[in-house]
């Protein structure tokens, strides 16, 4: 454990030395902090209405103004971060876990199983993400769980393919051959020896995947097909802002900027993490 902690420390140190990586670390850190402590930070109740002060511009009381129901936009932006991470984290980690398992099985198992799983991955990838999401939402109705499911289902193949490639390259390496000749079981080889070698690459992929997921959640909520009102989501802010775009610009700005910032932060962090964890990946992109 002590060893892995120092490794983690090295990685963070490496990321912080790269200016873009440091910026990413700061942005992501701020977002995560705001999301965790959202309800202590917000100056107003994110869903509390106050019709008297509706559609106001920015002021010292309302930093980003108010919406058509007099709700404080700044509070809704902060609380929206919580919703964004509530969707992004389980979806990305779920997809990573399933993709990792299937990918390792495809890479290590028999050829027919490999072909079958690859066909499955290719099929899932053949749906344009948003179109697939719309189809699922149309069938089962909009909710937070639906968004998580769609994101998970569509990103499993990405993780699966990478895990498979990594497993295939590791499969014939000497330490695996040695382990196999000593009669180690498949679960032991995959779990104890291969997993630690694959998980780092997938973690980088996950960091770079989070912004896509945040954008998809916001997009679906913008279309009115994601989280339900009055839950404060960045996409829902944009939806309100879109219908009121001629009255006030602040809702669109308030909903749009955090999405762009979050995307920037996670992208910077992911790229920097990739360079630190595995410099070889840089060339592959």
């Amino acid at each position: 454990m002590a060893k892995s902690r120092s490794e983690l420390g090295q990685i963070i140190h490496g990321v912080a030395r790269d200016p873009l990586g440091l910026m990413g670390l700061i942005i992501v850190g701020t977002i995560v902090f705001c999301a965790i402590f959202a309800y202590w930070i917000v100056p107003f109740d994110p869903v509390g209405m106050n019709i008297k002060s509706r559609l106001q511009g920015p002021s010292w009381t309302h930093l980003l103004g108010t919406d058509q129901l007099g709700r404080d936009t700044f509070s809704r932006v902060i609380a929206g971060g919580q919703v964004a991470l509530q969707v992004a984290l389980p979806a990305v980690f779920g997809a990573m876990a399933i993709g990792l398992t299937l990918g390792m099985i495809a890479g290590y198992g028999p050829k027919w199983l490999d072909n079958l799983l690859m066909l499955l991955f290719d099929t899932i990838r053949s749906f344009p993400t948003v179109m697939f999401a719309l189809a699922v939402v149309a069938l089962v109705g909009p909710s937070l769980q639906t968004v998580v499911f769609v994101v998970m289902a569509t990103s499993i193949p990405t993780y699966g393919r990478v895990a498979r490639t990594q497993t295939l390259t590791l499969r014939n390496s000497e330490f695996i051959l040695a382990e196999r000749s000593m009669g180690a079981s498949m679960t032991r080889i995959l779990g104890v020896h291969m997993l630690p070698n694959i998980v780092g690459v997938l973690a980088v992929l996950a960091a770079m995947d989070i912004p896509t997921v945040i954008a998809l959640e916001a997009g679906l909520s913008f279309l009115g097909l994601g989280v339900k009102p009055p839950t404060p989501s960045w996409g829902a802010l944009l939806k309100d802002g879109y219908s009121l775009i001629r009255q006030t610009p602040w809702l669109v700005v308030g909903g749009g900027l955090p999405i762009i910032l979050a995307t920037l932060g996670f992208t910077f962090l992911g790229e920097s993490l990739r360079d630190v964890v595995d410099p070889k990946l840089r060339k592959q992109r």
Partner: peptide, 23 residues
Amino acid sequence: SVSFVAAPAFVVALLSLLIFAVN
């Protein structure tokens, strides 16, 4: 490049609608 890659299309669409069409 990195910043452009980071901008989701629908957010850019909304902001450009706000700036270039409405304002």
